[in-house]
Design a binder for these strands. Structure first.
Lengths: 182, 182
DNA sequence: TCCTAGAGTGAACTTTGTTCACGTGAACTA
DNA sequence: TAGTTCACGTGAACAAAGTTCACTCTAGGA
């Protein structure tokens, strides 16, 4: 196991997030849950902000790596979109947390580039591929934010269907700008 | 003019937002700018949250009412999208403010419905019209949020062009599901 | 045995939102 | 004219938040 104390603090913070939500995620509450004085946490993270960043890092890293169907650009787009949404929905206030504290690292840039590559392989021009990728990601973030903030009442299957339907709209738009398959 | 004190406080808060950003928009700073003790503000707004809500209300109300080209559903969509984005970009941290504190009122629902109506008039089924509207709004929010958070360096014309290009993608997707014009 | 390093204590400080009993001056009313 | 009302503001306090700091404790290796 060999979990460093730093890791334990992070895990406790993620658990606490699930219990009380981000607005009540306080240094003191976290310290209490660890059976420790508030100041002790600053041995492991230099600030609360740094801790939140680490939580965000854990969330984006934990998103399920999609099984890539080679050559199927629409499938790739759908998988990436679903994975991004899933990562946020998996944690209470996940979307808000990402929106507020996410600073894209090299791995995020890498997966962005991978999508662009897939679209380029399907025949899209460089700029068109970037625009399409940007658009899908903006949609995923916008939809999920709104979903988590204001649609907790709507049953999950319905939300899934709505998300899918909007994504299909965008994919149709992208498909129209692509050269026809040979 | 006859501006009520309440109005003056709101105006001062909006000015202060522009100067210091939402993270440093504090009750004390606002009081100081009004030449008043912090507690005095609670005569006019029951809580800081209520004041932020009022600011959001002012921002969404202040978005330019688009000139509606009758019968042109794509034009209507573009106008609404541009108006929403413009409203957020017009204020520092506008997108974050909206995303965190916006609780859609009757007028927001009304303008949502108006878009749905326009699409229905163009031949879309009810559900398709709702999905299309939702998708455009999610895109606008997602794009603007990211834009204001991380693309301050990119020059405005370029950002406008990117926004337009993504929107065109979605509009193309919507157009593909509509019956051909007679 | 000494000593270093990681972990935690306990108490403080600053800043934040918020409350509350009380003053004050202008406008209305009898 | 005298009294009442009312909107507005004062001044001081409160609790909770993030953060800092000097000190202690406890292992484990030289």
């Amino acid at each position: 196991m060999m979990a460093s104390r730093r890791q334990e603090v992070l895990t406790a913070a993620l658990d606490l997030l699930e219990e009380v939500g981000i607005d009540d995620l306080t240094v003191r509450r976290l310290a209490q849950r660890l059976g420790v004085q508030p100041g002790a946490l600053y041995r492991h993270y230099p600030s609360k902000r740094a801790l939140l960043d680490a939580m965000v890092g854990h969330i984006v890293a934990g998103a399920p790596a999609p099984a890539v169907p080679a050559g199927d650009w629409a499938g790739h787009l759908r998988a990436m979109a679903a994975s991004g949404r899933e990562g946020m929905l998996a944690h209470r206030d996940g979307a808000r947390l990402l929106a507020t504290f996410y600073d894209p690292g090299p791995d995020a840039v890498a997966s962005f580039m991978r999508i662009v590559e897939v679209l380029r392989a399907a025949g899209a021009a460089e700029r068109a591929a970037v625009v399409a990728t940007d658009t899908v990601l903006a949609y995923v973030n916008g939809f999920t934010m709104e979903e988590q903030a204001r649609r907790a009442a709507t049953p999950r299957p319905e939300r899934d269907r709505d998300f899918q339907a909007g994504l299909d709209l965008i994919i149709a738009g992208i498909g129209a700008t692509l050269p026809p398959a040979p």
